[in-house]
Every structure is written in C-alpha cells, then in structure tokens.
Simulated assay, not measured.
Amino acid sequence: MPIYERRQRRLAALAEAERSLPISFAIVGVQKAGTSSLYSMLVKHRQVAGGPQKELRFFLEPRDWGQPDYSDYRRPARGPQSVAGDATPGYLFYPGAMERIHRYDPGMKLLASFRDPIERAFSHWSMERRRNESYPDLPEAIERYGSDELPGPVAADAGPTPLLRGSPFARGLYGAQLERALALFPAEQWLLVEFRALLRDPRAVLDRATDLLGLPRFASYPALPRRMAGPTTNPGPRPSVVAVEGLVRRYADDLSLFADLSGLDISAWPTRQAAEGQLAVPELRDRLCDRLGLSRSGS
C-alpha cells in the first residue's frame, strides 16, 4: 500500500478515535536491518498502540519546522494501550531529523538495529532496483554513490525521497550517524541492536525493548516475521573485486568508531572481517553477490 494511502487510513482512524497517544518512542534506523520485523513484534504487546502506517516519516517531511504542529503525531489507542511509537529508519541518516526529534521530545526513547554496511547496501540496492528498473546496475551504483559522505543540511521544504533512494552506501556510515545522535540523546535512552542478534534471539531483544519502554515483558512472545528477506535473483552484473575493496576501505575507520560508540559485537560482520584481513575481499564479494543471484559472467 502506498505511503499516502497508509497515512490517510491512520489519520482517519485518529479522527474517529475516542482516545489517542502521542508518540513516545521511535525506531530510527537502519533500513534493511529488521526494523519492520522489530516494530511488528513490538505492536503485538498489549500496551503498545499500532496502526496501518509503520513509518510516520514525520521528521523527514516538509513542514513549518519553526513552529511545527505535532497534533497528528499520535496513534489511536484502545484498551490498555499506554505507549505509541514510530518506525522510520531514515531518521538516523536524514539531515536534521534527529535534531527535530530532540525539539519534539528530548526524553524520546530510541531504538536502532544495525547490519553489516556492505550487506545492507547491497540489500538496499536490490530493493530500489525492484521498485525501479532504471535504478543503475550494482557496479554503476557503487561508482555513482559509493564514495558519498553523509549529506549536509537540506532545505526545510525539500522532499526526502530523492536523497533517501540515492544513498545506499552513505547510510552505512553508522559511526558518524551514531556519534551525531548520541550528542543529542544520552545512551540510556537508546536500545542498539545487532541485526544477527535480532534474528538469533528476538525474545532477548524484545525484553530489552520493553525494559527501555517501561513496559512489562511479553507474557507470550510473538514470532519473528521474516519480512527482511529480499529477492534471490537480481538483474545485471556483479561489481568488481576492486570496487568492493574500495567499499571495505571506505567503511573501515567508521566501523571502528561505531564499535566503540555502540558497544555492539560486530566481529562477525563480513566488512569488518575484510577490513581486518580475516576475510578475502573476493570471497566477500562472491558471498554477497551469490545471495543476490547476480551473474558471475565478466566478474
């Protein structure tokens, strides 16, 4: 369902609701790292209000940010529901979004899930290519976007979609993004999750999430939805080993910063292993490209 239709359904439900809750927590990152699955499990808690629009995108979109109207940044509530959340994984990345969240609520509870940056970027590419056949082949996407830095300020009236879709590799600069966000929100307001840990033990992650939100733990745990799986066949050639090696170098220092700031164990991430010489770059390239079903011809 398109974003516009989901939003209209949510606003209609909000207008009809006898009670609603302001948003008090947000899953702010990162895309293609299980955020949809985490959110869909959290809203199965009897005290968490859900709704038809997972990504509210409130802090990404053009509006009067000098005097923002927060009246519809809420969810309809019923029964024992006492907290409501937003799950927009572009917030951590998008320029100014975290600052806008801080102005809305300096005490906001924040969650973020992180995935190996090259693995995440290739999954992002696959998603964009599935949506739009004119999106460049993976080698061209690396050439076009692979050296991008985090974007600078954007105009308040700028729509977020072009920047978000054209950022498959800059989004993997987790250290720089987290450093910026931790300057606004202290560590005790965060739950940071490693993607593989979420897949391996979702109940433990849910326990940490409900603890952060001040909720009782699940009496009966929901199953982990496998929504993060992407297509296993994709068009076009695989990138050269040299191109992937450039990405490994691109992320190496940022991953060290990220490991220090987050405290997460990223030793099993292939990009980290390649940066430290524990995994050969050709093996990294072929492992990820095989998963995407990219052709071996000319590789």
Rank of each mutant, 00 (worst) to 15 (best):
Y39P: 12
R165S: 07
G96F: 04
V154N: 04
R7C: 06
F114P: 04
R291P: 10
G96Q: 04
L60D: 06
R6A: 13
R217A: 14
R144L: 14
D157M: 09
P139F: 05
R272Y: 13
P186M: 11
D286E: 13
L14M: 11
A15M: 06
L178C: 12
L38A: 11
R19N: 12
A15K: 13
F169P: 01
E149L: 09
G34V: 01
S113W: 05
A197V: 08
A49I: 04
S297N: 08
P89H: 02
L163F: 05
L294T: 03
L294G: 10
D211F: 01
G298D: 03
A33Y: 03
E16W: 00
R171P: 11
R103H: 14
A197K: 08
H45P: 10
M108Q: 11
P52K: 06
Q47E: 15
P106D: 09
L284C: 01
L178V: 11
D260S: 15
Y221W: 10
T35P: 12
A176F: 03
R120Q: 13
A209D: 05
E128C: 10
F93T: 02
R131N: 14
L191T: 04
E55N: 03
L284D: 00
P239G: 12
A209Y: 02
A187N: 09
A183V: 00
G236M: 08
V193Q: 09
S123F: 09
E276S: 14
V205S: 04
S240V: 05
V154A: 06
G96A: 01
A280C: 00
M41I: 08
F218Q: 10
D253L: 13
S134K: 06
R130K: 15
P80R: 10
V28Q: 08
I101C: 13
L92F: 10
S40K: 06
R10Q: 15
A223I: 00
S113A: 15
D157A: 13
P136V: 12
G51K: 07
L184G: 05
P153Y: 01
E133R: 14
A26V: 07
D86A: 07
Q278G: 11
L224C: 06
R217F: 05
R78C: 11
